[in-house]
Computed example of a mutant assay.
Amino acid sequence: MVKPSYYKTKQQDMILKYLISKKNQHITVNMIAEFLEKQGTPVGVTTIYRHLDKLVEQGELQKYIIDGVTSACFQYIGDETHCHEHFHLKCENCGTLIHLECGYMKDLYTHVLNHHAFDINSFKTVFYGLCRSCSDKKNHTEAL
């Protein structure tokens, strides 16, 4: 795939380097804006969105819109295309989004397809609950 070229700014380079350094995480525009602010290079969220959209078009980022309520998040994938092959877990308390790459989920996918004639879109499938940290905090609070 030929990637279109366009003028790159220092801020765009900083955004890309930040995304690469966090490639195993989902990053929001607000997280990027906070990072740039701390680096002494504030950039407006509209500008950040425009740059991220270009990176998505070029295939360097994956964009996730999980529930239509929370902000979109992005993940650097570079030339990797495996990112669409898993489900997600979202903490209802802290908002953490976790990639769930588990053989049991493939079994679930196959079962639903074979026994219920339904092809699950794993890219858009999200299970909601509490992450370990929030669950531990909740259990600790309830024990008091």
Rank of each mutant, 00 (worst) to 15 (best):
K22H: 15
L36K: 15
I32P: 05
T96N: 09
Y76C: 03
L97A: 05
N30A: 08
I32F: 06
L52C: 07
I65L: 03
Q25P: 04
E34H: 15
A143R: 14
N121I: 07
H26W: 15
L108V: 06
Q58N: 12
K63P: 05
E37C: 00
A117P: 02
E57H: 12
Q75P: 00
H84F: 14
K17S: 13
T46G: 03
T70N: 05
L97Y: 00
T110R: 06
Y49C: 01
G59R: 03
Y76I: 06
E142R: 15
K124W: 03
S5I: 09
H82C: 07
T46W: 07
L55R: 09
T46I: 02
L61A: 05
M31P: 01
F35E: 13
Y6H: 09
S135D: 08
L36I: 04
N139G: 02
C94E: 10
K23N: 09
T125H: 06
K54L: 10
I27Y: 05
T41P: 01
F118R: 05
Q11W: 02
L130F: 10
S135R: 15
A72N: 04
D107V: 03
P4F: 10
I65Q: 03
L97P: 00
D53Y: 11
K63D: 04
E37N: 15
Y49W: 01
A33C: 12
I48Y: 06
H140V: 05
Y7R: 11
F118A: 04
H84L: 14
P42R: 06
H84I: 13
M105T: 07
K3I: 11
A72P: 03
A143C: 01
E60I: 08
R132V: 10
Y128W: 03
T46C: 05
K38S: 12
K54H: 12
M31D: 06
L108P: 02
H111F: 14
D119N: 12
H84Q: 14
E60T: 08
S71C: 00
A72Q: 06
T81M: 13
Y18K: 07
T70F: 10
F127T: 04
L61Y: 02
